[in-house]
């Protein structure tokens, strides 16, 4: 059981350009917050910052909490924040099972127990018996599911989705979206998704924020294309810092 993902006055800038103005928000476990914005607006950069892999050219400040744990001073591998990219990024030199084993928590000790856990996860995802396969032989949808399984097996306390449905065709897209949100809900972790596709935001059925880039500095506002099912911004805990 994890706590809320909370951002305190997070700002990111590149050289003199402010990408993310001071941002406060919190996402409760099981909730999905969607951050929208055109490409190059700094959405992915924010995820990099949260994940702890921000390239050195960027400057950032602010604090990040998961529950009562401050993660912003931790190394990425200690944060327990999982990221799903639009590419599955399965390690091509490892089999499907080895990919999952790479993600699976080390606390599960015996080889047998690990293999069973992996096989169970695959079976749940409709991929029973795929463990010894070369990832390159899987279809796009299968690979995407394996990538999510790998992420979840690491037992993250928060999930970051970086346009994860972008490269899938329409049919797969809807199916995989359902799969992802169902899994995320089942895991009971806060989810932050960035996308520039409104249907993704609709499917997420959560609050939406929008980055509006401007020459004098970006601003972040509650999303204009709110979905019917969306909760009020305030209840999602997102506020835009004053003065910007």
């Amino acid at each position: 059981m994890s706590g809320a993902l909370r951002l305190e006055r997070v700002t990111i800038s590149l050289a003199t350009r402010v990408l993310i103005p001071p941002l406060e928000l919190s996402i409760m476990p099981g909730e999905v917050l969607t951050l929208m914005g055109p490409s190059g607006s700094g959405k992915s950069t924010l995820l990099n910052f949260l994940g702890g892999t921000l390239p050195g050219a960027f400057r950032a400040s602010g604090r990040v909490w998961i529950g009562e744990r401050e993660v912003s001073a931790l190394a990425p591998q200690q944060r327990r924040i999982g990221i799903l990219f639009q590419d599955d990024l399965l390690f091509p030199h490892l089999s499907v099972g080895e990919n999952l084993a790479f993600g699976l928590e080390a606390s599960l000790r015996t080889r047998r127990a690990r293999a069973q856990r992996i096989e169970a996860a695959l079976a749940e995802a409709g991929l029973a018996g795929f463990a010894p396969r070369d990832p390159a032989t899987l279809s796009g949808g299968q690979r995407a599911r394996v990538a999510l399984l790998r992420l979840l097996l690491a037992a993250p306390e928060a999930l970051l989705l970086d346009e994860p449905f972008n490269k899938l065709d329409a049919a797969l897209r809807a199916e995989f979206r359902r799969f992802v949100f169902a899994r995320a809900a089942a895991a009971g972790v806060p989810v932050l998704m960035v996308t520039h596709d409104a249907t993704d935001a609709q499917a997420a059925a959560g609050a939406v924020l929008e980055i509006v880039p401007a020459p004098e500095g970006a601003s972040i506002a509650p999303g204009a294309r709110r979905t019917q099912a969306a909760a009020p911004v305030q209840s999602a805990g997102a506020t835009v810092a004053e003065g910007l």
Binding site: P76, Q77, L89, F91, H93, G103
Partner: peptide, 27 residues
């Protein structure tokens, strides 16, 4: 090499040393 491999591995909880030895070097 796609840097996201390393980032993904880090986010899966692997230490940088493990990422280097198990992911980058083999790739």
């Amino acid at each position: 090499l796609d840097q996201r491999y390393a980032r993904t591995a880090l986010c899966l909880g692997a230490s940088p040393r493990r990422v280097f030895l198990r992911i980058k070097l083999p790739l």
